[in-house]
Design a protein around this nucleic acid. Structure first.
Length: 183
DNA sequence: AATTCAATCAACCGCCTCAAG
DNA sequence: CCTTGAGGCGGTTGATTGAAT
C-alpha cells in the first residue's frame, strides 16, 4: 500500500487559517502554480502539497465565481451529468468559475434531491420512477440518455404541463465536450 | 432559551493514471 | 519492462450553521 503523500512530515490538518491562505496566495502570485509537492516548504506552510492544491483550486483561485448556482448552471450540470456521470472535473470544466468539488457538493445536496422530487428515483443514472409514469414501462434497450431542462425546452416533465417526455434512450443531447472556455 | 435535527460545504482519504528514471 | 512518486479525481467525513421543536 502506498504511503500517504505527507507521511514524512508533520503537517497541519483541518480548516485553513487566514495566515496560511495568505502565504499560499502570495507564493502562487510570485511563482505561479508549479510543483505542489515542493510548494509547502517553499511557501513556509506546514501542509501537504495535495492540501495546498485543493485549497487553491477550490477556494483561493481568483477566477472562482462562488455563490448560488444559476438556473442555467443547474440545467447544464444536469445535462452534463446525464452524459458524463460523476465526472465532476469534466462537468466543472464547462462551468466557468466553478470547481469540481463545488459541483459535486451541489449535485449531492441540491440537484439529487430536486430530481428525486420530480420522480427520478435514481438521479445518478437519471431514471424515472417507472411506477409513476406509464410512459416508462416500456423496456429501455440502451443506456438511458435522459433528460430535461428548464432551458432550453424540455422538462423532466413529471409535473410540468408543457412537457414532452423524459427519457429518450438515444436522445442526442447536442452537446459536445471540448476544452473549457478561455477565461 | 435550549435542544435536536437537517443541510451545507470545506477538507481529507484512498485510488488511479501517467511520466520519469 | 518495472518501480516510484506526483498530480488529479471521486467518494466520504465531520464541523458548522440554520431551522424546527
Amino acid at each position: 500500500m502506498r504511503k500517504p503523500c505527507c507521511e514524512k512530515k508533520e503537517t497541519n490538518k483541518g480548516a485553513w487559517t487566514k495566515q496560511e491562505d495568505q502565504k499560499l496566495i502570495d507564493y502562487i502570485h510570485k511563482h505561479g502554480e508549479g510543483c505542489w509537492s515542493s510548494l509547502p516548504l517553499a511557501a513556509g506552510l506546514l501542509r501537504c502539497g495535495k492540501s495546498c492544491r485543493l485549497r487553491w483550486v477550490n477556494y483561493l483561485r481568483p477566477d472562482l465565481k462562488r455563490g448560488n448556482f444559476g438556473e442555467d448552471e443547474e440545467d447544464l450540470i444536469i445535462k452534463l451529468h446525464a452524459l458524463l456521470g460523476n465526472r465532476w472535473s469534466l462537468i466543472a470544466g464547462r462551468l466557468p468559475g466553478r470547481t469540481d468539488n463545488e459541483v459535486k457538493n451541489y449535485w449531492n445536496t441540491h440537484l439529487k434531491r430536486k430530481l428525486m422530487k420530480m420522480g427520478i428515483d435514481h438521479p445518478d443514472n437519471h431514471r424515472l420512477t417507472a411506477g409513476n409514469n406509464p410512459l416508462l414501462n416500456k423496456p429501455i434497450t440502451s443506456k438511458p440518455a435522459v433528460i430535461s431542462f428548464t432551458n432550453p425546452t424540455i422538462n423532466y416533465g413529471v409535473e410540468s404541463k408543457k412537457t414532452a417526455l423524459c427519457i429518450v434512450p438515444d436522445l442526442n443531447l447536442d452537446l459536445t465536450i471540448g476544452p473549457p472556455p478561455l477565461p
